[in-house]
Amino acid sequence: MSRRKEYMEGFRNGIPIALGYYFVSFTFGIVGSKNGLSWWETVLISMTNLTSAGQFAGVLIIAAQGSYLEMAISQFVINLRYSLMGISLSQNTDENFGTGSRAVLGFGITDEIFGVAANRKEPVSRIFFLGLMTLPYFGWTLGTLMGAVLGDIMNEALSDAMGLAIYGMFIAIVVPKAKEERHTLLIVLLAVAISCLFYFVPLFSSLSGGYAAVICAVAASLAGAFFFPVKAAEEQEAAA
């Protein structure tokens, strides 16, 4: 495939992510301005972080004038999942995806960009990945700007409902895979069950959401690797 074609293929795959991001980051923009940040501060956070849960938590810490250590720990815990995704993605990159490109493009590892790249059958090239992250980055930035500027005049019921946008994207990635493979379905259900346990059992519910997600994912994936180890052929197919 020519480089241009490969870039455009990634670019096209990024369109739905960018649209979803627009709505999610719109909500973030509102939250930022409601917590006393100026519009450019809120936009700057989005441009340098490109993550949802971590940014929402970060803004609340800034608003509460929390300590720098608290900020660092919260970001670490909430975003630790990206490390797992980075390792997972490193297994499906092509041979030209070198250290330098990883240092730059690694910035673009988000839940959804990773989700799409991990679902890809062919090895992920840096050109494809760059194309894939292009529009979502602009969608995330623009949505934040619009939310920060227009948020005040927006109806609360509407901004509430838009909070579902990000989960809808997650569901759109997971469900087709779970439908296709019974073992993935079972492991996903296990992850959900553990997650509910964390949420509803008082002893565990003090754990922050990001930390809980990492524990759930690791526990369920370990169970998956133990009970349903995937065959190499299946991986190729899935990676494809």
């Binding site: 997650f170 997650s195 509910c196 369920a220 370990l222």
Partner: peptide
């Protein structure tokens, strides 16, 4: 295999509940 399941378990755990 562990890495294979990670994308789906992370996203599912973040979604529910």
């Amino acid at each position: 295999s562990f890495l294979y399941y990670i994308p789906y378990t992370v996203l599912a755990a973040m979604t529910f509940p």
